[in-house]
Computed example of a mutant assay.
Amino acid sequence: MLALIGLLGGDKLVYLRHVTPELVAAIIMIGGMLGFLGKVILWRFFPEDEENL
Rank of each mutant, 00 (worst) to 15 (best):
L8I: 10
M1D: 14
L7S: 09
P47M: 02
P21R: 06
K12M: 09
G10M: 09
L8T: 09
D11R: 13
K12T: 14
V40N: 08
W43G: 00
P47H: 02
E51W: 00
G31N: 13
A3W: 12
L42A: 06
R17W: 05
M33R: 12
L53R: 07
P21L: 06
M29E: 13
L8Y: 13
F46Q: 04
V24W: 09
I27M: 15
I5S: 08
G38T: 07
M29Q: 11
F46D: 02
D11G: 15
A25N: 07
T20K: 04
A26F: 15
G9E: 07
P47T: 01
V19N: 01
Y15K: 08
T20D: 06
K39M: 09
L23A: 10
G31S: 10
F46I: 03
G6I: 04
H18M: 03
V19M: 06
L16S: 03
L34S: 01
L13T: 15
L34F: 02
M1Q: 15
K39S: 07
W43N: 03
E22K: 03
N52G: 05
V24C: 08
N52L: 06
I5M: 11
D49L: 00
K39W: 05
V40L: 14
T20M: 08
E48A: 12
G35S: 08
L13W: 13
M1E: 13
I27W: 11
E50D: 04
E48Y: 03
Y15Q: 15
A3C: 15
I41W: 12
L13C: 07
I5F: 13
L8C: 12
L13F: 06
E22T: 10
I28T: 06
L53M: 02
G31P: 01
Y15M: 10
